[in-house]
Design a protein around this nucleic acid. Sequence first.
DNA 1: GCGTTGCTTGACGTTGACGTCAACGTAAAG
DNA 2: CTTTACGTTGACGTCAACGTCAAGCAACGC
Lengths: 133, 133
Amino acid sequence: MAGMARERTWTIAEVAEDLGVTHRTIRYYEHLGLITPERRGTSRVFHARDRIRLRLVLRGRRLGFPLEEIRRIVDMYDQQPGETGQLRYLLDQIDDRRGVLTERLRDVQAALQELDDLERRCREDLARLSGPR
Amino acid sequence: MAGMARERTWTIAEVAEDLGVTHRTIRYYEHLGLITPERRGTSRVFHARDRIRLRLVLRGRRLGFPLEEIRRIVDMYDQQPGETGQLRYLLDQIDDRRGVLTERLRDVQAALQELDDLERRCREDLARLSGPR
DNA sequence: GCGTTGCTTGACGTTGACGTCAACGTAAAG
DNA sequence: CTTTACGTTGACGTCAACGTCAAGCAACGC
């Protein structure tokens, strides 16, 4: 049991392909400190951890958050336990984020609701047009 | 009953104040065709309709959609019934939008779930630190 | 050895979404 | 009539988030 099974790693091209982004995007994210892939010689070596962080980043991006803000958020996720003050601060941050996300949730729900209304009206119009032959 | 009650209107400054944006933003949105306020002489006159559209735009913006895409969406909302082909096309568009929004909904829910998990772990750590005096 | 393939680092270009002047019109207030 | 407040149109600036070269190293097949 001594010596763990060699963990699988990925090249930048594989990660880019997998997540549907370009290598330029990945390099830019590393530049901003969103990910910190291992270096083996001059090349980047991606671990599962990097892929997880990237997925978090891309989700944040889909929701329209700026990358700098996303960095602060993903950083929250892999902090060490720390001391009491740190933890209280983190709990405050969590509350802030939850506030914003809850607002976004309402935005999406409202938008979906309006789509439903529009579709209903749309179908009524269609029925009126094709119904009475 | 002949002669409707004069509908209330707004200046650009009032609208900007109300919606929490600058007049520059509003002018830019008009430039992109997101709104088409009435002109009285040289000045813009905003009606309730314009404010409603602006609110739709800002919601789309909060969700991170590009303004050009938002324009196509808000345009869906105030089309005249039209003929069958038009309506079918509109129904297609609605389905597309619903697909994207449903994905966003899942994104937000996943993010909120992870915040909850993080908070729980955080509170456990706090208890371990302050619990056994 | 030599070309191909894949990775690397700059460095400059681009696009979207505005910010920020400058220069001017206009209508009410003093 | 002049000031003040609010409006207007350009035009240029800026910042984020990449795109797009250019030029070079490094390993592998032949």
